[in-house]
Design a protein around this nucleic acid. Structure first.
Lengths: 237, 237
DNA sequence: AAACAGAATATTGAAGACAATCCTGTCCGG
DNA sequence: CCGGACAGGATTGTCTTCAATATTCTGTTT
């Protein structure tokens, strides 16, 4: 038995090597990212290189490279000579990220509204339909559908770097969203917002889509921060 | 003689180990970053791990970690099985970055105007004075002073992540700015913009400072893109 | 003479081993 | 009984070595 649990095998699921994503460090990074974003490893959890290497059937050097990669993404932190730990965000940092996302997603949405094609609209419509078919009992699936819906719209903007930045920021706060249950809260509101967003996208109304997208991010942020505040309150002491 | 020059010793200056920045990979990353941003290595230059390791007195594993770090920053690209090369940006990508910077810097400027203290104002004033004391003959010093001036203002916003993102984007296009000579072009305009920015900052006029900052970024972007276009024109064939 | 195929070389990708450092537990002293 | 110092163990940081693959050169063939 360990006194300070670092990472159990059950948290790193998946076959040993289903399809090597070009390189071993990338594969390791993918697995770790999924484990962290899936909320299977709590913030502050120390990431022992030896354990990870053994569980993924690799050696330590590739694991180190993967951790460097994740460090750049802000998912893990390096304490010199003390190893890597899963990065933790306080409420101030979460708020800052949502604040940035507001600006970025508003901009991307504006561009998307101007560049949309019929094909884009029909695909986004399909994603919206798929998302609305899910009820609150399938939160995992709903989160995935939600992600696909928004990402598909942003892809229309055709700004690779902007998209990468938005996704990275989103990923960073994603696990908190699930933790705080901010998605399930106020489901009808979220549904209405999605419909309005789609309508503006379909209509090609740039400023409206931008405004709605920004408000949507802000709303999610507020719900999450409220949930985190409540959580912190109950964990006080 | 090499047929395809990768990286000469002269391009990686500096003492072997002046002050170890906590870890060897970080040190290597710092050196490489400086070499790339300084414009000493052209875009597309292959980065041979063995050469870098030898020149910096390290081994290959730390170099690999450093390259992974830089990969996350977008300064180098990894071609699987073919090694790392200095990342190159086409004009579309440069334009995209400036477009993002407009939104980010506008936001940061707005926040800075609201949070400024007397101390902040006096320090920024000093930086402005220092910058104006330099003439066009000292472009390197001017660029540094310019960087310090804007960064100091953005620091007032007290948004660490936002600041990091802005600096990272700025760094990515920095070497093109020097290459294109976009800084020297239209020096009087730049000077006026800086004065207006300082005035709004001093006055605490949030929306004006935001608008001016955004326009300043846009102006720099336009000048740079024009310079790059001209350059491309002359290099045609 | 040019194009293709094969081999040799060079470079990346990965693994194992060694050294340095930090943490944990215990023992001793106040 | 509590606090500090020391020793043992564990973990990180780095190096050396080995394997796999892409590139390039050369030789041959058409």
């Amino acid at each position: 038995m360990r006194t300070s649990p670092s990472l159990t095998s059950a948290q790193l699921a998946g076959a040993p090597l289903p399809s090597p994503p070009s390189s071993l460090p990338d594969y390791v990074a993918d697995q770790l990212r999924a484990a962290i974003l899936g909320g299977h490893v709590a913030a502050g959890t120390p990431l022992r290189q030896e354990d990870i290497a053994k569980q993924l059937g690799a050696s330590r050097p590739p694991v180190r490279e993967a951790l460097r990669l994740l460090e750049g993404e802000g998912l893990v932190e390096l304490r010199p000579r003390r190893g890597y730990v899963v990065a933790s965000l306080n409420m101030t940092e979460v708020a800052e990220i949502f604040d940035i996302r507001e600006r970025l997603e508003e901009h991307a949405a504006e561009l998307a509204a101007l560049r949309r094609t019929r094909k884009d609209v029909s695909e986004v419509a399909a994603l919206l339909t798929r998302m609305e078919a899910l009820d609150e009992s399938e939160l995992g699936l709903f989160a995935a559908a939600n992600h696909a819906f928004h990402t598909r719209i942003f892809q229309v903007a055709d700004r690779p770097r902007l998209l990468r930045m938005m996704l990275s920021l989103r990923e960073t706060v994603e696990r908190y969203i699930r933790l705080g249950g901010a998605l399930s809260a106020d489901m009808p509101t979220v549904r209405d917002e999605h419909r309005a967003i789609f309508a503006a996208f379909e209509a090609g109304d740039s400023v409206t889509l931008g405004r709605l997208s920004r408000a949507h991010v802000a709303g999610t942020g507020h719900r999450l921060l409220a949930a985190l505040a409540a959580r912190e309150q109950s964990h006080a002491g």
